[in-house]
Amino acid sequence: MLMCRDLARIASDYIDGELGPMDTVSVKMHLMMCGHCRTFIGNLRASVDLINAHSSQQLDEELVRRIDERVTESLNARNSGNGNSD
């Protein structure tokens, strides 16, 4: 029988739909009987949503500026090189 600790081990696989059919049924049966695990799965899912919403906003502007500079330099060097074909 699936215990709470076992469920916690495979919770991400369940959330992502990566569990096999037998394990999925075991998790669903356990969740029907266990409020703590329902809360756990719900909160883990909320954490995943939070990571998605948060991480997509992250950008290191200073790094982007440095890359832009190097790319622009290289593009200019290439273009002037093409123009001076001697």
Binding site: M3, C4, R5, H36, C37, T39, F40, G42, S47
Partner: peptide, 11 residues
Amino acid sequence: GRWATPPSLKT
């Protein structure tokens, strides 16, 4: 294998 300290709050 059961929760000793279960998750307390629901998000």
